[in-house]
């Protein structure tokens, strides 16, 4: 799986390199686009000193951790949400006659290496936030764990959104509400949202485990909504559970395609 992915990703990278100017523009544009997201936070904090009780460095940290995870997952698996196009165009049939996993082939198809620009920007942002926060080493171990869990959670969301499209080929955009919506939701401290919404993204769709619960641990803060403190250590568990659900859903989708032809 990994080998196939790497081979195909390299092929697409070479294809992209055929238009060097466009490649450079897109990479820089990606860097700048994500820079504008940071500018939004800057504009907010030009008007206030705290958002829902969190300062600018803390919001930057939560945002950086979530969006770094999202951009990595998007770089690697974002194209899975184009599956309905492959179904309609018949290219899924081409993937199915090759001796490789259709998931890997769909994920890597049209692999766009210039999305690395965004990943780099988010990493820089997370680094800046951390340098201003001064997290004690005793709690810093959680940072790589939360980013890795976040990548798995977003990747699983992309796979789920792909699986859903086996049913909803006419309206793939519905899935965007969950993938890009999830990224949007986790940009800010979750306590800005209603308590019910937060409970929903804690116990149903585990977005709170991307950056909020582990982030509270890193920041050494009480949960403003008073959920059990144990939750902040459960990100890897939540990520694996969601990944398992996504794998099952994807397999069901492929089985459905091969047994219904649609």
């Amino acid at each position: 799986m990994v080998r196939t992915y790497a081979l195909l990703a390299w092929a697409w990278t070479r294809a992209a390199a055929q238009y060097p100017l466009s490649f450079a523009v897109m990479t820089v544009a990606g860097f700048v686009t994500s820079g504008l997201d940071a500018a939004v936070i800057w504009v907010i904090f030009a008007n206030t000193r705290s958002l829902a009780g969190f300062g600018v460095a803390e919001v930057m940290f939560l945002y950086g951790a979530s969006s770094l995870a999202f951009t990595v997952a998007d770089l690697l698996f974002g194209n899975v949400d184009r599956i309905s196009r492959h179904i309609r165009a018949g290219t899924l049939d081409v993937f199915l006659i090759r001796p490789a996993s259709p998931f890997v082939q769909v994920a890597v198809d049209q692999f766009v290496p210039h999305r690395v620009g965004r990943v780099v920007q988010r990493a820089v942002m997370l680094g800046l936030a951390l340098s201003r926060l001064g997290v004690p080493p005793g709690r810093a171990w959680m940072i790589p764990v939360m980013v890795a869990s976040g990548i798995v959670i977003f990747a699983a969301l992309f796979a789920l959104s792909g699986a859903v499209q086996f049913l909803l080929t006419g309206a793939p955009e519905v899935a965007n509400a969950f993938t890009y919506g999830g990224a949007q939701l986790t940009q800010y401290p979750l306590n800005v949202y209603g308590a019910d919404l937060v409970r929903g993204v804690t116990y149903v769709l585990p977005l709170a485990f991307v950056n909020w619960q582990p982030g509270l641990y890193v920041l050494g803060r009480e949960d403003p909504l008073g959920l059990p403190p144990l939750l902040r250590f459960l990100s890897p568990v939540a990520a694996l559970a969601l990944a398992g659900a996504a794998a099952l859903a994807w397999r069901a989708g492929i089985r459905r395609y091969r047994s219904t032809g649609s």
Binding site: A11, W12, A15, Q18, G90, T91, D93, V94, I97, R98
Partner: peptide, 15 residues
Amino acid sequence: IGVVFGQRTTLWWDL
């Protein structure tokens, strides 16, 4: 087996 679809290519468009 080998499969060829006349109406769509299995090759990589930009390569």
